[in-house]
Design a protein around this nucleic acid. Structure first.
Lengths: 219, 219
DNA sequence: ATCATATTTGTATTTACTCTCATTTTTTGA
DNA sequence: TCAAAAAATGAGAGTAAATACAAATATGAT
């Protein structure tokens, strides 16, 4: 696989410091997702980024800081893309479903991104739950719309994140399988307090959304 | 904290090979739970076990193999203890609840054990889900008793394991909090297809079980 | 275009660990 | 008790992280 250069390209025109940082992140995403965190060596990452070993330490204290920065960059990017695409949805419940589905779908299409998210979640679940911060707003919206009755706290978000990350990890290993992705969406809704029937109905209700239709969703 | 010697003591009288192996596992549980997997060094583990560095390699190929063996030893031990104590319960649903609660409660009382389970689950979720293999039987029992309608597959068990491990991890960090533990039990039941009301009712139904009463359960 | 500043380079050094293996010690069972 | 087998030892080779730093280079504001 050829090196990804997504963040590099985003940074064209920016300060040198930012550009180099992005080069390291691009390189790290590649090496982490290919070898895993522990096997990835700093010198290899620097080399692949076209930089000398010492340069790494101008930007990050250690590997942990780099994987955290990579995961955050990825999460921000995904969130940005999702936000725009579900702006048309008013129902909190629908937003939860579509965002959850699309988030996982996206991370499965861009496997190296997904791998880094999984890596960082395992390392620091609290920060990982932050990756799903967008869910908080949509859940609260659904509560305000009287479609859910639930207290939104960090523990709840962590439990939901655990479901999603476990699903992601499994499918990164086995390949995308829509039924599993839909099951995870259902489980999320059930944990949020919907009955299985309601969850199924809500899911069917958004099956026609463009972000789901790409896959020809069969609920 | 003084070193735990649980498995060592189990192995008194056994072959030398087994005794040394258990000494390494005891030591590993201590070091892993105190420093985490990455910071733990093989030489430190060997030293704490009263062994020379090289001895480690007579028993395990690397740290991964050791943490896997430790987690398995722990899981077997917990399963053994739980099995005996829920033998009186006939209802599959009740067994699911009590076992889930007691499993987490146990891992929270013996923090170093809990930490190793979390570590291994993060490393290899599939094997981690094996830790919860006991759940499979109880779920199938509940299905046979017509209290659940669900297909039991590996994916389902992994999703449930993810909920439990996330809860465990959070409480290892923050300390035992019964409300969170009970919430995780409820979420497990909901994922299994119970409505929130049913889940709540089932939970109340077993609140009097000895394994839960230790904590004076307030549902 | 210039130059003060910021960044990168790459080597050298320290530190810490993993893993190997020839040798020594301990165990086991007859 | 004894000898063969099993296990333990610990020094050493090899690897990589982390840090330092003086010299070289690139940058961007003016």
């Amino acid at each position: 696989m050829v090196m990804q250069t997504y963040f590099r390209q985003q940074a064209i025109g920016a300060q040198k410091r930012v550009r180099t940082r992005c080069a390291l992140i691009d390189s790290a995403i590649d090496v982490f997702s290919e070898k895993g965190f522990e096997e990835a060596s700093i010198s290899e990452i620097a080399l692949l980024a076209g930089l000398a070993n010492g340069t790494f330490y101008n930007h990050f204290r250690d590997k942990e800081e780099l994987v955290a920065a990579s995961a955050q960059a990825i999460a921000l990017e995904i969130a940005k893309q999702l936000d725009a695409r579900i702006a048309d949805l008013d129902s909190g419940l629908s937003r939860i479903i579509v965002a959850t589905y699309a988030f996982l779908r996206f991370a499965l299409r861009h496997k190296s991104w997904g791998a880094v998210l999984v890596e960082q979640f395992q390392r620091l679940p609290a920060s990982g739950a932050g990756v799903m911060e967008y869910l908080r707003g949509d859940i609260q919206r659904a509560v305000a719309q009287r479609r859910l009755e639930v207290v939104v706290d960090d523990f709840l978000l962590e439990q939901l994140a655990a479901l999603m990350i476990a699903s992601l990890r499994r499918q990164l290993a086995d390949g995308f399988q829509q039924p599993q992705l839909l099951r995870t969406c259902e489980y999320v809704l059930r944990v949020l307090g919907l009955t299985p029937k309601q969850a199924r109905r809500e899911l069917a209700g958004v099956a026609a959304h463009p972000l789901l239709v790409e896959d020809v969703v069969a609920v």
